[in-house]
Computed example of a mutant assay.
Amino acid sequence: MIEIATWNINSVRLRIDQVERFLTQEKPDVLCLQEIKCAENLFPREMFERLGYGHMAVSGQKGYHGVAIVSRLPLRETGREDWQANGEARHVGVEILGHDLFLDNVYIPAGGDVPDREANPKFGQKLDFLERMTRWSEGLDRPTLLVGDFNIAPLECDVYDHKALLKVVSHTPVEVEALGRLAAAHDWVDLGRKHIPAPERNYSWWSYRSYWRAKDQGRRLDHMWASPEVAARSQGHRFVEETRRWEQPSDHIPLITGFAA
């Protein structure tokens, strides 16, 4: 079995100790990171190499966004899509060699605070990003795992208060509908809900602005989706919530799925 993890780290250099602790403790074969917030030449390769993750695909930029894949297993980079059409580093794809598996790591835009395309251009950019991803998904003809911070909690049980969040970006009907179109474009299987069925609690993000452990005001913003043939190989899915209690944590937690090799 191989295990693949995804984690919005919210600055890989700031939280390098947490990443090392996670890799030492959980030992996934592959880790996908979002919001690395550094240019490619500043990515902390030495730590990953020291722990045996010597294969890397990094798409970064100074101070914002950025995604990376680090792996014990050999990789071949397959592309970097610009689904926001503005040059931001939000996607990198690889083939995991010898395992008949393609892996795409994505950081979908948050979309600002106002769920209105006219009043808030960032919200429109998010919807356009999803539309471009949908067109890409329609053309996929290879066994693919799509992971990352989608910045959308689609199900009522994916947020702490469905009614209260219906007009809050990340859980609005228009975003959920757009994500649904993306899911249908490739018959993607949501592994988080395959292995942890609704309505079981399955949050991956808690705001820094609320005392999350007391109120548990979480949302399921991070996802691992698989082509049907890849989903059939999945053998378990878990989230590592303890990382949210570590010192100076990311506001997201890692997800890990195992697959038959």
Rank of each mutant, 00 (worst) to 15 (best):
I2Y: 07
I4A: 01
A5F: 03
A5Q: 03
V12L: 05
L14G: 05
L14S: 13
R15D: 00
D17S: 12
Q18R: 15
R21C: 02
L23M: 06
E26C: 04
E26G: 01
K27C: 10
P28W: 00
L31G: 06
C32D: 02
C32A: 05
L33C: 04
Q34D: 02
E35A: 04
C38A: 04
C38N: 09
C38I: 05
C38G: 10
N41C: 13
P44T: 01
M47C: 06
M47Q: 07
F48E: 00
E49K: 15
E49M: 10
G52C: 03
H55I: 01
H55N: 02
V58C: 01
S59Q: 15
G60I: 02
K62C: 05
K62F: 08
K62H: 12
G66A: 00
G66R: 04
G66D: 02
V70T: 08
V70E: 03
V70S: 00
L73C: 04
L75T: 01
L75E: 00
T78H: 07
T78I: 03
G79F: 00
R80K: 12
R80N: 08
E81W: 15
D82C: 06
Q84P: 11
Q84W: 12
N86S: 06
G87C: 04
G87K: 08
H91K: 08
G93Q: 09
E95G: 03
I96H: 04
H99N: 11
L103S: 02
L103Q: 04
V106T: 12
Y107A: 01
P109M: 03
G111H: 07
G111M: 02
D113A: 14
V114F: 11
P115C: 01
D116S: 11
K122S: 03
Q125L: 15
K126W: 06
L127D: 10
L130W: 08
L130Y: 10
E131L: 07
R135I: 12
S137I: 03
S137D: 04
G139A: 05
D141I: 11
D141S: 14
D141H: 15
R142I: 02
P143E: 00
V147K: 11
V147Q: 09
N151Q: 02
E156Y: 05
C157P: 09
Y160E: 07
Y160Q: 06
K163Q: 15
K163E: 15
K163N: 15
A164D: 12
L165P: 09
L165A: 02
L165G: 04
L166H: 10
L166F: 08
V168T: 15
V169P: 12
S170G: 07
T172Y: 01
V174A: 13
L179H: 09
R181H: 14
A185Y: 03
D187N: 15
D187W: 13
W188S: 02
L191D: 05
G192I: 06
R193L: 07
I196F: 11
P199R: 00
R201Y: 12
R201F: 08
N202H: 14
N202E: 07
S204I: 06
W205A: 02
W205P: 11
S207C: 05
Y211A: 14
W212Y: 13
R213C: 03
K215P: 12
R219E: 08
M224A: 03
A231F: 03
S234I: 06
Q235S: 14
G236S: 01
R238A: 09
E241K: 14
E242K: 15
T243Q: 08
W246I: 00
E247H: 13
H252S: 00
H252F: 06
I253D: 08
L255K: 08
L255I: 10
L255T: 06
G258T: 06
F259T: 07
